[in-house]
Nucleic acid binder design. Structure first.
Length: 933
RNA sequence: AGGCGCGUAGCUCAGUGGGAGAGCGCUUCCCUGACACGGAAGAGGUCAGGGGUUCGAUACCCCUCGUGCCUACCA
């Protein structure tokens, strides 16, 4: 006899089973190369991250799919890993070393990177460990990191190829710059937030007159870089200013008035200052009118030398105050007012970004994006739910070139070198236009062009090693190669300078579906598992990541990276707010697994995961699913209680009684539902199907129906029931295993001792069905439900055993009920039930009218006639309403003419049934009234 | 401003061109030999509002209101 605890306790078993599976190698793809492949690459979590709700849902979905497919016989690979999160990781380590007063520049590039690797070795595995707690069946032997040697090789290969094809290029234009992270950011890495700003009205004197043009701006500090003022050509207020100049206050520079359609006359004063070096719109406007571009804010967010002596070196927001103050002194500030507007922030550190003109590397995305769109349009990649298609198309249509260079150290360094000793095509010495800024003075120099510094006697290596920033003019010819370059191929100089920038982390993530499988080598994994079967992700990285993988996959693999993209919801708190640390509404998934067990938590996430809607997380529901697991546990315990000396036999349908045939049929139905729903990524429906079967069919009905046979039945009856029970339990556990791996494995091991792990069992399909069981079972269900209703509604004491008379309206009904009397008696707490086609109502009986039977329950003078009349009357009313409704439909010629015949037929038979029921209710009611009960 | 979505039982949400379902909560009753993490019986909904298409609309179309998100702009 197995020692079965009263209630299920997940704590002691989860880690044990996880270790067991891993040790057995079950997470690795089977070596059966004939089996069809099923592959998933994990969306690599940030190596600095720890598991949050989003990861938990994401991992649960992937694990359900992986375990399910594995049980279906697929050769499953779920490949895990993390990304190196360039900016985030660098920030973490910089903070760490700054506690010891160390700046990364003092440490030097190589030593700093070494520090980051050390940090990664110590803390980088946290999220992996947390995924294991969730039960994730990833193949850890294939775990990858975006900075691994192999993945770095892939990055290099891709960069060089794109460079050679001209799809990667350098350009000098305005980009989003984070002054704190000290790097460029892509468009996507900027988050806009509404802030309460101020709109300042500033008077710009018109040269040679006493007039002013008043401009309105939210960023007065940028006026130092103004190179024009624009007005709308239609704006009559400004019609006379063509060709005139303004005197830019605080600088004395003369700037032109230009006319541009883009100016909104209704906003502010209808005149807008133009600062091409610090605003994206102004940059475009400047280009249209050939205005100069003057950078007045530098990379650290302080005013640059060009801002003038009075302002240079002070912070951009301090400068704003000073400008306002100075304008007031000059009486050039006409006014100011509150003005809410959206301001871009760095997605990593939340610092307000500064548009800056810099030279960066870009990927030309147009053609790649068009191909990605085609793969969705042609269905080679499906987005699920497909309501995302339009969003995807729209974004891809408007995509800008992708800025991929970052001015940080942690990441894939750009494989490009520059030779200062060569000349540009136009004959300029390249060393003259490569500018170095040192971290601290070297031989008394803090900056200068490469040529100058060499002339001043600094050795090449010192110049490079001490450079905080290297600005390489666009004119300098980049040297790019698969292998590192140590000498200039044309002039053979060994004094070459490597581009200091690294690539955007997403650049390497974009290669993830094939770089992790060994590309650029043509590996067996690549052949077996690319394209991957499905990508599971949330919509918030659809563009960041999914779109870019599609672009790169199409370009380098000539095939989509995944056939399906299942886009799951975002998890919000119970009030629908996004979870965030600052709001303090974060729920830690590990606390959930600790409190309720990983299985209950996973099942909840699956049950929440309806397509197309965000999830409001409710802890109560997790608790509810823990109860469900306990229910399963106790059902198992019940079976084992009565089977200690039972030897398991294969299911023989001929030996089953009606309830057995019925429940076997229901199981088959439930199994089909689970599979069908999983096929369609309907995880909530799949979870619901199995939940309903286990609780409301298996436990509520079959176990109860089988009790008489188990308690008092013959050996044969008992054996038939147990045989059925084990069939149900076995398949239920298998159906549940992808959702709840731990408890199913635990029960499996206890019940089906010696049969190995449930993980490698076959997922149920094509289970036996029984056609007529449902119809016949309806009589039994009606009998039980009818009697229970009467008992409940008339408050018959639960302990009181009653008698019931059942009038069967068909021979079949009579026979079925007679054959199933013991469970009906037990389930209705009846001591006696008379069944027959000629049974009639005894005086003082309560009444229940069902479809094929009528039930009379003698109340021994306790029947409250008035209450019973009211009860029956209420039911009559309901039926009368239904009859009226259907009658109206059936007497409508258009309905008969236009509705599908089966619908009409269905309504007709429903109508007949209702009429019958009504007449029976009428008869019984008359009886009640006329003969005083 | 444009786009997408949502509004169904007290709450959280499924759902479908043929008179609406679940879980939790609520009411009444029961520790009946798997389970009180349980069992039985109930109550509860103009499917946001208005219009249209249809024999028939909660579902499809349009409008309004409320609500959430995304994208762009905001001098």
């Amino acid at each position: 006899m197995i020692d079965f605890k009263k209630n299920y306790d997940p704590k002691e078993i989860e880690d044990r089973w996880y270790a067991f599976w891993e040790e057995k190698g079950y997470f690795k793809p089977s070596s059966d190369s004939e089996a069809p492949s099923f592959s998933i690459v994990i969306p690599p979590p940030n190596v600095t991250g720890s598991l949050h709700m989003g990861h938990a849902l994401n991992a649960t979905v992937q694990d359900i799919l992986s375990r399910w497919k594995r049980m279906q016989g697929f050769r499953v690979l779920w490949l895990p890993g993390t990304d190196h999160a360039g900016i985030a990781t660098q920030n973490v380590v910089e903070r760490q070393i700054s506690k010891d007063g160390i700046d990364r520049h003092k440490l030097g590039r190589d030593a700093f990177i070494q520090k980051v690797w050390e940090w990664k070795a110590e803390y980088g595995g946290r999220i992996i460990h947390q995924l294991k707690k969730m039960g994730a069946s990833c193949d850890w032997s294939r775990e990858r990191f975006t900075l691994d040697e192999g993945l770095s090789k892939a990055v290099r290969e891709v960069f060089v190829k794109l460079f050679e094809e001209g799809l990667i290029y350098r350009d000098n234009r305005l980009i989003n710059w984070c002054p704190r992270c000290h790097t460029a950011l892509s468009d996507l890495e900027v988050e806009y937030e509404d802030l309460e700003g101020r709109l300042y009205y500033i008077k710009y004197p018109v040269s040679g007159t006493n007039e002013f043009i008043v401009v309105a701006t939210t960023r007065p500090e940028t006026m130092l870089g103004d190179t024009g003022v624009a007005v709308n050509p239609e704006d009559e207020r400004y019609s006379g200013f063509a060709g005139k100049f303004l005197e830019l206050p605080l600088t004395g520079r003369k700037i032109p008035v230009v006319y541009d359609q883009a100016v909104d006359s209704a906003f502010g004063t209808g005149a807008v200052k133009v600062t091409p070096a610090h605003d994206f719109n102004d940059e475009a406007m400047g280009k249209r009118h050939s205005l100069a571009s003057l950078t007045v804010i530098s990379e650290d967010g302080r005013m640059a030398a060009e801002a003038g002596e009075r302002y240079a070196g002070i912070d951009r927001y301090e400068c704003r105050k000073r400008i306002i103050h100075d304008l007031k002194e000059l009486d050039l500030l006409e006014g100011e007012k509150k003005h809410p507007h959206a301001v871009g922030h760095c997605y990593r550190c939340k610092t307000i970004i500064e548009p800056l003109q810099t030279i960066q590397w870009y990927v030309k995305t147009r053609g790649l994006a068009d191909d990605a769109v085609k793969s969705v349009e042609q269905g080679r990649t499906r987005l699920i739910p497909d309501s995302w298609n339009n969003n995807f198309y729209a974004w891809m249509r408007d995509i800008n070139d992708w800025c991929i260079s970052r001015q940080i150290w942690w990441g894939h360094r750009i494989p490009v070198w520059y030779c200062p000793d060569c000349k540009t095509d136009s004959g300029v010495q390249q060393g003259d236009i490569i500018e170095h800024v040192f971290f601290e003075p070297v031989s008394g120099r803090i900056s200068g062009s490469y040529s100058e510094l060499r002339k001043a006697g600094l050795p090449h290596d010192d110049i490079v090693a001490n450079s905080k920033t290297i600005r390489v003019s666009k004119l300098v010819k980049p040297l790019c190669g698969k292998d590192d370059i140590s000498e200039c191929p044309s002039c053979k100089s060994r004094n070459i300078i490597r581009d200091p920038d690294v690539l955007d982390t997403w650049f390497s993530s974009a290669l993830w579906p094939f770089s992790t499988l060994g590309w650029p080598e043509q590996t067996g994994d690549l052949k077996a598992f690319y394209p991957t079967s499905v990508l599971v992700t949330a919509f918030d990285i659809l563009f960041f990541w999914v779109a870019r993988m599609m672009m790169m996959g199409g370009k380098f693999m000539d095939d989509v990276p995944f056939k399906d993209v299942y886009i799951h919801a975002l998890i919000r708190d119970a009030h629908g707010h996004k979870m965030s640390k600052s709001k303090g509404n974060v729920i830690d998934p590990l606390i959930m697994t600790d409190k309720y067990g990983a299985d209950a938590f996973r099942f909840s996430l699956a049950a929440f995961a309806a397509q197309g809607r965000d999830i409001r997380f409710s802890e109560e529901r997790v608790e509810g699913y823990r109860f469900f697991i306990n229910k399963l546990w106790n059902a198992t315990k019940f079976i084992l209680n009565y089977s200690s000396d039972y030897k398991r036999k294969p299911l023989d349908q001929n030996k089953l009684d009606l309830s057995g045939r019925w429940i076997v049929s229901r199981l088959s139905f439930a199994a089909d539902e689970v599979s069908r729903n999983l096929e369609n990524y309907r995880f909530n429906d799949a979870a619901g199907s199995i939940y309903h079967f286990v609780w409301h069919e298996f436990c509520d009905w079959y176990i109860e129906l089988s009790k008489p046979a188990l308690y008092n039945g013959s050996e044969e009856e008992k054996e038939a029931v147990l045989c059925c029970m084990f069939h149900l339990l076995e398949n239920t556990l298998k159906l549940l295993h992808p959702f709840m791996p731990f408890v199913t494995e635990e029960i499996w091991s206890l019940v089906f001792e010696g049969s190995g792990s449930i993980m490698v069992e076959k997922f149920p399909s094509n289970l036996p069905k029984v056609d007529d069981a449902e119809r016949q079972m309806a009589y039994v269900l009606d009998a039980v439900n009818g009697i229970r209703s009467v008992r409940g509604e008339l408050n018959v004491s639960p302990g009181l055993e009653i008698r019931a008379d059942i009038k069967a309206l068909s021979k079949e009904a009579e026979e079925v009920i007679k054959a199933n009397l013991p469970p009906i008696l037990k389930m209705t707490r009846s001591k006696e039930i008379n069944v027959g086609m000629d049974v009639s109502r005894a005086k003082g009986s309560a009444i229940a009218v069902m479809n094929m039977i009528e039930i009379y329950i003698p109340m021994e003078g306790l029947l409250d006639i008035k209450a019973e009349v009211a009860r029956i009357g209420k039911e009559q009313e309901k039926i009368a309403k239904d009859i009226m409704f259907i009658n109206k439909k059936l007497s409508n010629e258009d309905f008969i003419k236009n509705a599908p015949p089966d619908v009409v037929a269905k309504d007709r038979s429903k109508y007949e049934l209702l009429l019958q029921k009504k007449s029976k209710l009428d008869d019984n009611l008359n009886l009640l009234k006329t003969v005083e009960g």
